[in-house]
Design a protein around this nucleic acid. Structure first.
Lengths: 115, 115
DNA sequence: TTAATATGCAACCATTGGGTTGCGTATGGT
DNA sequence: ACCATACGCAACCCAATGGTTGCATATTAA
């Protein structure tokens, strides 16, 4: 375990952030979050994009492990996959904490220097 | 405030995620985090990239507000900017919580349906 | 059976992105 | 004064991305 000590593990968060780094995909995530699993056609409604555009974005999210889709009859239902979100979340948590620590160290140095 | 209620605010997180969505930039953030403010030349050492490459990545991070640089003598010192990290962190927090809520609702529906 | 719905696949296009090289310039050290 | 260091700017290149259209296919409904 101890994923917060493994730099390689940390770098693997990049694809997750990359997948979230697009306004359209963020909206998709939000919609899947708020309204639960949906078909592509339904996800397309309300966006200025083509169904194919949405499909591509869903694939990107799926490749990052943020989302999963399976065929149900003639439609394919897509839903959120929480684990990867948690990975990203933990990464930011770690960075924030490290940054806090660095800030404190810096602060101490400054105070020492001016004392 | 209540940034967690403002969809427009939420979408504005996309550039932050996009900036973090690259392995090289994640490493830069980690290095700035661990070893504090550094010059471009120093940040370049240890990477297979050119100084210009690093400079470009720093600009991307800066445009996302994650990092800030200022000229000190003949070198330019770059350091982390924590607030944007917190924004991203809060976004993931929100999504996670919404997702939890959706999961619970779904769970209830399933249980009702099979009861 | 026929029509409408929901999707997948492939080609294509324009733009962005990651990365380099070359060159010019300011700063620091000797 | 001179040289090395640290940097910025601009041009350039190739690959990836965001987005479209056209067409083929499976499924549901009438």
């Amino acid at each position: 375990m101890t994923p917060d000590r493994d730099p390689a593990r940390l770098e693997s968060s990049a694809p997750i952030f990359a997948a979230l780094g697009d306004a359209t995909r963020l909206k998709l995530v939000a919609r899947l979050c708020q309204s639960g699993p949906q078909s592509i056609a339904r996800l397309t409604r309300g966006t200025p994009l083509t169904r194919q555009g949405i499909t591509k974005h869903l694939r990107v999210l799926a490749d990052a492990g943020l989302v999963r889709g399976r065929r149900l009859g003639r439609e394919s239902r897509w839903e959120l996959e929480p684990q990867q979100l948690i990975v990203a979340h933990r990464y930011l948590d770690l960075i924030s904490k490290r940054w806090d620590a660095a800030l404190r160290r810096l602060q101490e140095l400054v105070e020492e220097g001016s004392a």
